[in-house]
Amino acid sequence: MKILFLTNNKISYELFYWLRNIKDQDVIMLQEDINIHKLKEIEPDLIISYNYKYIIKKDIIDYMKKRIINLHISLLPWNRGASPNLWSFLEDTRKGVTIHLIDEGLDTGKILLQKEIIFDESKETLKSSYDKLHKEIVKLFKENWKDIKNDRIVPKPQKGVGTKHFVNDFKNIKSLITSWDINILKLKNLYKNFKGDLNDKRI
């Protein structure tokens, strides 16, 4: 089986090496923006996107015929898009990890696997919660890999409207995050005051 592994983050490397060490699997990592010419050159049986910053285009999706999956550290449909861990705390939405098919929308594809994660916000930081989510999604992937690659999981549509965020949303509040080790409750208080100040200025 030939697998194309798309990533731009070293936190994904553990899973890449795990896949590469499995017998009868040829796993190729790609960090640049994939195009149809490169795809046809590689001819993968499956594409795995994990912490990949580029939007996968329609011609790639059509060519692969639903054989592209994404690993996303939120409980979809909550917190589609950028910085899902951060926004799950700031907006008090459910938290977790999702492995889903990629379609033309922003993290809107059908769900293969999900796991809800509960955090003690008084003890967690942005970094510790981020690390835990990645640990959980890798574990979920490994436990179900045989079923994923053999198409034994029935994809389920996402339910509800959910939420989504873009890179610019993070840029607007970036000043609040002095360190990735900031306590979650402290950050939420800062964000609450920040929103209050914005509302005051609008009046």
Rank of each mutant, 00 (worst) to 15 (best):
Y63T: 01
T125Q: 00
I102L: 14
I48T: 01
Q114G: 07
E121R: 00
L106T: 15
L76W: 11
H134Q: 09
L46D: 02
D24V: 14
T98N: 06
L46K: 03
S49R: 07
Y52N: 10
K115L: 06
W87M: 06
Y130H: 12
N70Q: 08
G105E: 05
K123R: 02
L71Q: 13
T93G: 03
E14Y: 14
Q31T: 11
K66E: 05
S83M: 05
W18N: 01
Q114K: 14
K110D: 14
G96M: 15
S88C: 11
I69P: 01
Q31I: 12
I102P: 01
L90K: 06
N85C: 12
I118G: 04
L113V: 10
V27C: 03
W18G: 00
T125V: 00
G96Y: 10
H134C: 12
A82S: 14
H134W: 13
E121K: 01
I48W: 10
K127M: 05
L39M: 08
H72K: 14
L113S: 06
T125Y: 03
K115D: 10
E124Y: 10
K57V: 08
S49P: 11
K53A: 13
I102A: 05
I42W: 05
S88F: 09
S88H: 09
L113G: 03
I42D: 06
E124T: 08
S12Y: 14
M29P: 09
D33A: 05
H37W: 09
I36D: 06
K115Y: 12
I60G: 01
D45A: 00
V97I: 10
R20V: 02
